[in-house]
Amino acid sequence: MANTPERSFTRRAALAGLVLLPAAPALAQGKPRIVTVLGDSITAGLGLPRNLALPSVLEAELNRMGKGVRVRGAGVSGDTSAAGLARVDFSVQSDTNVCVVAFGGNDLLQGIDPKKTSANIDRIVGKLKARGIKVVLAGMAPPPALGRSYARDFAAIFPTLAKKHGAALYPNLLAGVGGIPRLNQRDGIHPTAEGVRIIVRGLAPVVARTLG
């Protein structure tokens, strides 16, 4: 999730892709509902082909559940919560029904004050709600090595904001995947295709309930 030159290129390409991706055809049952996944390199699928990245796998699972959706990936490698706040208005298109907000990993890596992260995500969720978009807030569990007080304050961000905004909460995006070598790529941070499938198995029911 670090912002290397290579990932800076990925960031530019991803931002361009948000605009240039062709519109998806409607599903057989009619016009699909739109789920947008707003986040960083984990949601962008860094290191994976598009069809194995989180947005594509989530779309397939939700449609298997009969939800009739298209899932748009709006993840940009290297993004912190501040970067997400700066682009939420144009990265999440107006026809979005549900937005999965998944920031925090890069804030953790950079040791950003949890109060700043909380304020950024608070504003992201507030902006989406003001536009009539439902939110699933995906949390991030901090490793204990960061220090007990920092970890405690960071972990509290997500349930606190979900309660404040009445948003659905998925407490830990990397539940069942984080820290397990075989489920992560060589960097130990980004999930493998198998790791993504595990993430989606936990996340999809929360998104499905939010869709209604």
Rank of each mutant, 00 (worst) to 15 (best):
V35Q: 04
V35C: 06
T36C: 11
L38T: 15
L38V: 10
G39L: 14
G39E: 13
G39N: 13
D40E: 12
D40I: 04
D40T: 07
D40F: 04
D40M: 02
S41F: 05
T43D: 02
T43V: 14
A44M: 11
G45W: 07
G45K: 05
L46P: 00
G47H: 12
G47E: 07
P49Y: 08
P49M: 08
P49G: 11
R50F: 06
N51S: 12
L52E: 15
L54H: 07
P55A: 06
P55K: 06
P55Y: 03
S56R: 13
S56P: 00
V57S: 07
L58D: 10
L58E: 11
A60T: 13
E61L: 01
E61Q: 15
E61V: 08
L62H: 11
L62P: 08
N63I: 12
N63A: 12
R64A: 09
G66C: 07
G66E: 07
K67G: 00
K67L: 09
K67Y: 02
K67T: 02
G68S: 15
G68L: 08
G68C: 14
V69A: 09
R70M: 01
R70D: 00
V71E: 11
G73Y: 11
G75M: 03
S77T: 09
G78S: 08
G78E: 09
T80E: 10
S81V: 05
A82T: 12
A82C: 02
A82G: 13
A82L: 11
L85Q: 08
V88H: 01
D89S: 14
F90I: 13
S91I: 01
Q93V: 15
Q93K: 14
S94G: 03
D95M: 01
T96L: 06
N97M: 00
C99M: 04
C99E: 02
C99A: 13
V101M: 08
A102H: 05
A102P: 05
F103A: 05
G104P: 15
G104M: 08
G105L: 07
N106R: 09
N106P: 06
L109S: 14
G111Q: 12
G111N: 12
I112Y: 07
I112Q: 14
D113Y: 04
P114M: 03
K115G: 15
K116S: 11
K116W: 00
T117G: 15
T117I: 09
T117F: 04
S118E: 15
A119E: 14
N120H: 12
I121R: 03
D122M: 04
D122E: 13
R123Y: 00
I124C: 03
L128P: 06
K129N: 15
R131I: 10
R131Q: 12
G132V: 07
K134W: 01
V135D: 11
V135S: 07
V135K: 08
V135I: 14
V135A: 11
V135C: 09
